[in-house]
């Protein structure tokens, strides 16, 4: 706390002349405000450095695609649209974006549909050890789509004859995402008062009718979040389609990006930079649309 140099506020005022405060009081006050100022400046500098560090890759993402000779360093571009022209000539680039969308939407439909039903049941029906089941599923789900289960997943899908098919990829992705979704949605469903459903039941509505008329509309923000989150997860997933798909024309964008090399075996930054911008656009668009429509905060990053 800074002490104001007025005679009444200093406890020593009875021993010192009332008009002139002791010089050391003023000095201490000045020191304190200077220290405060310096700490604010230091804080601003540190935050600026951190902010710039985070912003640089973003700036690269926006500038590099328009540079005739992009490199991994950041420089003022030599403006051109050639990179995009070359990208569109690549037979796999545009198609892969479509593939990613297809995979994302298919997985989303399965995840939202089954997730809502399972979460509703989990929320409303007493099962012994329900929380144990939920936590167990959550724990195991990170294994299903993770690196550790790569080999068994591949073997299962091969034996099912689903290798190199979207069915296989969508099933594995949905299986990996569903437990988390059920976990999140169950909380949403728990927050819906039971009296809403009982009220509908009294008027003769069956379980599916109640889910459609009452539960789903009220849980809509939760369902919307789940839908977007699922698409983002699938969009950024590299491992599962990389393992399970063989044909290059089935590959989604995240895998195709990995194939952009020059003849000399070096990463083709001109293609990669242009493709990266294209790759991130749909997710950003979805984010803004959903944010405007439902107004919820979409926290968390897009991880791959």
């Amino acid at each position: 706390m800074t002490s104001t140099p007025t005679p009444t506020s200093t406890p020593t005022s009875t021993t010192t002349p009332p008009v002139a405060p002791p010089p050391n009081v003023r000095k201490v006050a000045a020191n304190a405000s200077l220290r405060h100022f310096l700490s604010r400046v230091a804080f601003a500098i540190v935050m600026t450095i951190v902010g710039v560090l985070f912003a640089l890759p973003m700036v690269w993402l926006v500038l590099a695609p328009f540079d005739a000779t992009p490199s991994l360093t950041l420089s003022w571009p030599d403006w051109t649209l050639d990179n995009f022209a070359r990208l569109f000539e690549n037979p796999y680039a545009l198609r892969s974006i479509g593939n990613s969308l297809l995979l994302g939407v298919a997985t989303m439909v399965i995840v939202v549909g089954f997730g809502a039903l399972a979460a509703y049941a989990m929320s409303r029906i007493r099962i012994p050890g329900r929380d144990g089941i939920l936590y167990g599923l959550l724990l195991l789900s990170s294994i299903v789509t993770g690196t550790a289960a790569m080999v068994p997943t591949f073997q299962i899908i091969t034996q099912l004859g689903l290798i190199n098919s979207y069915t296989g990829v969508v099933l594995v992705l949905a299986g990996g995402i569903l437990p988390t979704v059920i976990f999140i949605l169950k909380d949403f469903m728990d927050s819906i008062p039971k009296s809403y459903e009982e009220s509908a039941r009294l008027y003769g509505a069956g379980p599916f009718r109640i889910l459609r008329d009452v539960v789903a509309p009220i849980a809509r923000p939760g369902l919307a979040f789940i839908a977007i989150w699922t698409i983002v997860q699938v969009w950024g997933n590299f491992l599962v389609p990389f393992i399970l798909l063989r044909s290059p024309d089935l590959q989604p964008a995240a895998v195709v990006m990995y194939t952009f090399y020059t003849e000399s075996g070096q990463a083709d930054l001109r293609l990669i930079s242009a493709f990266a911008l294209l790759f991130s656009a749909p997710v950003l668009i979805i984010y803004f649309v959903v944010n405007r429509r439902y107004g919820f905060r979409f926290h968390g990053g897009i991880k791959s």
Partner: peptide, 19 residues
């Protein structure tokens, strides 16, 4: 089933559908 009993109920929290 509750739906066929010809019974209507007002719940303590009224259970009005917010949407």
């Amino acid at each position: 089933e509750p739906g066929v009993r010809g019974v209507a109920m007002v719940f303590q929290d009224y259970a009005l559908f917010p949407h």
